[in-house]
């Protein structure tokens, strides 16, 4: 191997090495986060929502609106006509209650951020705007949000909403478990405190799982034998008990038990490999493909003369 081709190979290798280093920055990070599974902080808090107790009074919505200083709603919170449509969370409603007809009378279901153990929004965010706090809340840092809305795509429960109305400061709006004002200080969120029917039970997540199963066991026939959120997408901080099958009251029961990030791990784990292998692979192919051809092995004029002969002439 002559000097030039050695140099050629070295250059390619150096470029490759640089790329690999760049890659390992991304790759390692990705790997560290993607490997293993996170079951939630041991001291994480949660809320158990008992749909059989909810009467659709919307007190929780009003409490949330006040606590989070959200704009005045178009219709007052005692207006029952909102139940005519299925609503979702948006930039001025962090929680909404929907009404479902599931055979024996109406069933009301409160929705808000479920505060996943391993949140899709968090793992999909490229500026790391989301944090799962040790208290169990999934909070959001609007100071770094670029507004790409990938978290909205990644949320299996369709919770994060975007402040489309703002031209200068459009950010994500979602329930943060009243983290700043309450949860941090050991207080339950505003909606839980306001609920007149004890639909919402606040506590350590691990205790709530036990409590939920006890309620199912002690009230034969009242509940479907499942706590929604105990295992769904890796487990959620907010969990549900229901008297009717969950899919009849708007729950997606096809989500599976793997956290969202598990779907992405296949790809993330190929990234450092591509970064590490491609440079040598393609530099090698280059050397193989062009050996003795026009790129030559660098024998100066001999090579040029050869090229002159080999060059196809039109």
């Amino acid at each position: 191997m002559s000097g030039i081709s050695r140099r050629k190979f070295l250059c390619a290798t150096v470029v490759g090495g640089a790329m690999t280093t760049l890659g390992s920055v991304c790759g390692k990070g990705g790997k560290a986060w993607a490997s293993g599974s996170f079951e939630g902080y041991p001291e994480g808090m949660g809320v158990l929502v008992d749909l059989t107790r909810c009467i659709g009074c919307r007190t929780c919505e009003a409490a949330c609106n006040k606590e989070q200083k959200l704009p005045e709603p178009d219709q007052p919170f005692n207006d029952q006509s909102v139940f005519n449509t299925k609503r979702r969370t948006d930039e001025s409603h962090y929680t909404v209650v929907n009404k479902y007809d599931a055979g024996q009378g109406p069933v009301y279901r409160k929705i808000q951020c479920n505060h996943c153990n391993e949140p899709g929004c968090l793992t999909s965010c490229f500026v790391n705007a989301y944090t799962k706090t040790k208290e169990g809340a999934v909070v959001y840092n609007s100071k770094v949000c670029v507004g790409c809305r990938t978290c909205m795509v990644a949320c299996p429960f369709n919770i994060p909403a975007f402040k489309y109305s703002s031209a200068t400061d459009p950010v994500i709006k979602k329930c943060i478990f009243c983290h700043e004002t309450r949860l941090k200080n050991g207080l339950p969120p505003a909606c839980v405190e306001a609920c007149p029917q004890a639909v919402l039970t606040f506590g350590y997540r691990k205790d709530l799982v036990k409590l939920g199963h006890e309620r199912i066991r002690n009230n034969a026939g009242r509940y479907v034998d499942q706590i929604y959120g105990e295992t769904e997408v890796g487990g959620t901080g907010w969990m549900y008990l229901s008297g009717v099958p969950f899919e009849q009251v708007g729950f997606d029961t096809t989500l599976g038990n793997e956290p969202i990030i598990s779907n992405v791990k296949d790809f993330l784990s190929t990234v450092p490999m591509v970064l590490a292998i491609w440079p040598a692979l393609f530099s090698g192919i280059h050397l193989l493909a062009t050996k003795g051809k026009d790129h030559g092995s660098g024998h100066g004029e001999d090579d040029h003369v050869k090229n002159e002969k080999e060059e196809p002439r039109p």
Partner: peptide
């Protein structure tokens, strides 16, 4: 499309979410 296009360089300089596919993109 971005809500805050002026923050496009953030994933390079300000805040890093390396587990995110979009970070790679």
């Amino acid at each position: 499309d971005l809500g805050q296009p002026w923050r496009l360089p953030y994933p390079m300089a300000v805040a890093f979410g390396p587990a995110s596919v979009l970070f790679l993109v």
